[in-house]
Design a protein around this nucleic acid. Sequence first.
DNA 1: AATATCTACTTGCATTTTGCAAGTAAAAAG
DNA 2: CTTTTTACTTGCAAAATGCAAGTAGATATT
Lengths: 142, 142
Amino acid sequence: MKSGDKRSDCPISSSLDIFGDRWSLLIVRDLMVYKTRTYGDFTKSAERIATNILAKRLQVLEDNGIIIKLPYPDNKVKGLYKLSPKGVDLIPALVEIALWGEKYVSNPNEGSPFLKEVKKNKTKFLKNIMDQLSADDAATSD
Amino acid sequence: MKSGDKRSDCPISSSLDIFGDRWSLLIVRDLMVYKTRTYGDFTKSAERIATNILAKRLQVLEDNGIIIKLPYPDNKVKGLYKLSPKGVDLIPALVEIALWGEKYVSNPNEGSPFLKEVKKNKTKFLKNIMDQLSADDAATSD
DNA sequence: AATATCTACTTGCATTTTGCAAGTAAAAAG
DNA sequence: CTTTTTACTTGCAAAATGCAAGTAGATATT
């Protein structure tokens, strides 16, 4: 988990060194669904992450260039987190995990509208959402 | 990590409740690459998992129906682990994680032959490897 | 048959991570 | 000027991780 210690050169292993825990990908999920989030927003998600864990995960994700912290417009206390391009590129993996989870471990009667779209046309869904999040990137960088 | 406690109904969250740690998906990776492994084989992988952790992860993965433990032919000590169909279905997620890792956190000069194939034709690669592992399923179940 | 070795674990213990509850400091709102 | 909101930090108990060593039964060796 600390930056610098890679267990091996395997890309899967190196990836898991960064986000192989129970929380990191949920943060990415929230940023995929909502585009931007404040610290407080994250604490309100269904899984109820503890604030100390949240702070650490946000730091690791930021250190690894997966998320970006921006100042909140006209407010010096709040911050706004969003996915970087590197973070946006995690969406295909996230979607595959979601599909697996829905198939094998989810309540059958609560299919999310998101996953319904994914199953209708995965390629189209990915292009749409990734383009959208990338467009936000371009917008905020000027 | 214990069976039974789901943090929420989100399929991503529920999936991570099972394999959201630094080791589980490496076990799945080894079974994807090598088809079958003994306990000792796993301990020889590059990341050098400790034997107590390995035993626990194998148990959790077996409890969750992701891997299957078979007797080793003509040997009462050894066991042979392999992916179940549910485990085989994790391969698309694993491949996306590998692609992300190769793009962002891997040594640029060591592209695996596996990933080269994936990048040439992802759909074909997935079909081939998943069919192959499923065929092994059918063979061992009679 | 006796012994050594191999295989799959288990156990003990130190370290690290997680999780909960409470606290804090600065900005914003009233 | 006081209260509230926001983003954290801190202290501490519990759980997970990691290392090293131990064990028990099957297998190979002499």
